[in-house]
């Protein structure tokens, strides 16, 4: 069981959260016509073994989107930050 620390609600079981995937992937601006960038955004991932930035949503708590740094080989992780604060 992962125990994730939500900056709003405190430390909670992973079952209260929903995983949102790789947070290092950035959506291209809607005006970008280069389909290659969209292809990379939708389908391609670094799939790191080790340090991984990822989204979680606290669906059974504050419903905020959060960003977590977690090691995919050991499951060690830091604290969640609000996605709205880490991203401009």
């Amino acid at each position: 069981m992962l125990r994730l620390s939500c900056p709003i609600c405190g430390t909670r079981d992973e079952t209260e959260f929903v995983y949102g995937g790789d947070a290092s992937v950035k959506r291209p601006a809607l005006s970008v016509p280069d389909t290659y960038l969209w292809l990379e955004f939708v389908f391609y991932r670094d799939n790191m073994r080790g340090r991984h930035l990822e989204y979680w949503q606290h669906v059974q708590g504050c419903r905020q989107w959060l960003v977590l740094e977690r090691d995919t080989a050991t499951h060690e992780h830091g604290d969640c930050r609000l996605a709205s604060e880490t991203e401009a």
């Binding site: 069981m1 992962l2 995983y19 995937g21 790789d22 990822e54 977690r70 995919t72 080989a73 499951h75």
Partner: peptide
């Protein structure tokens, strides 16, 4: 449900 190479389940 989340990316992992840990080969042990939760």
């Amino acid at each position: 449900g989340y990316n992992s190479y840990a080969q042990r389940g939760g």
